[in-house]
Computed example of a mutant assay.
Amino acid sequence: MPESATDAAYRRFLPWRRTFEIGFWVLLIGINCVGNSITTLMEIRRGRSDILSWEPAVWESSSAVMWLVVLLPAIVWFTRRFPLHWDNWRRQLPWYLLASVLVSILHVTGMVALRVLIYRWQGLEYDFGPWGREFLYEYLKDVRSFMIMVFSIEAYRFLLRRWQGEASLLDTPDEGPPVERIELPERFLVRKLGREFLVAANDIEWIQASGNYVNLRMRQHDYPLRSTIAAIETKLDPRRFARVHRSYLVNLDQVASIEPMDTGDARLHLKDGTTLPCSRRYRADLRGRVGAGVGVELGTPSA
């Protein structure tokens, strides 16, 4: 299948993906920090307060640092561990409510600690106020910020999956028998920006677990499929695909060589140059399956 303009654009985006993601949050949180600092200072000046002009900047920047450096990476990890979808939001809601409280506790204690340090550096004392009242006030703000971040992260992942193409299993037809075995599919349906096409299961080179998804690797392109690695393993031909790691399945036809390690694990070198890990749990079975006349080089242990 020739590469489309969409595929080419996605491939060009990949090297810049991490820069884009980090830059987006730095810019968004930075703009919010500067804007809040200015408006807070303006409100203070209207009331002729004796608060120094640098204090609102310290308040807002300490909050921004906690969100950007500590909390955002934790939220990204949490949403991968407990992904939120239309069909599971009721089950996940208690976890998200608990997470919002923990996020707020970390946010408040962290930013107060930063403010105390900066104020002492300036020879002053920082007074946060009554902790019970002030924490409730901060939590009501933090829970909104937390949910906005969760929504933004999930929306971005959804758009990214649509752009790169998201795979799914073929459904049972409403009428008549299926054209192939549903429990052992020979093809997968890929949806990409309004287009649909079929890909052969045998064209999958390797599969990697990614949270509640697995990435199907085909021709240097990843297609996410909503499944666990264990579930997709049961749906692939065991004569062609082998589990080599808790997070990886590999197409045996793609294995060029197995490099044993002194630790008991191994490295798999695929025909396209990719290197995958192979844990000791699966190494012996893999050697037996690929070593019998299939042109795979079996190496000697290396450090």
Rank of each mutant, 00 (worst) to 15 (best):
I258L: 15
E175T: 14
H245F: 02
G132N: 04
V294Y: 06
D272P: 08
L98F: 13
K271T: 12
G47Y: 13
P224T: 12
F13E: 06
L286D: 11
L28M: 14
I232R: 01
L170H: 01
N32A: 15
V101F: 15
G129P: 08
R162E: 05
L216G: 11
W86I: 00
F188N: 04
D222Y: 12
R240S: 12
D142A: 13
G35D: 08
A99N: 11
A200H: 14
L117H: 03
M1E: 04
D222S: 13
T40R: 14
A167C: 10
P173M: 10
E175S: 13
V112S: 01
Q220G: 07
L72E: 07
E21I: 13
I182E: 00
I22H: 11
P277N: 10
M261F: 07
P94G: 05
F24T: 14
G110W: 03
V112K: 01
L160Q: 05
N36G: 15
V26E: 07
Y139P: 03
D142E: 03
G288T: 08
P185C: 09
L124I: 00
A256Q: 14
P301W: 05
A200K: 15
D203Q: 14
L270P: 11
D171Y: 03
Q254R: 14
A99Q: 13
W206L: 02
D237T: 06
E43C: 07
R91Q: 12
S210H: 09
W206H: 15
G299L: 10
A201D: 06
S227D: 12
E175Y: 08
I232L: 05
I232A: 05
A74I: 11
F82A: 06
D272C: 09
A9I: 09
E233N: 12
Y223R: 11
R289S: 13
F128P: 03
G35M: 05
G35W: 02
A64G: 00
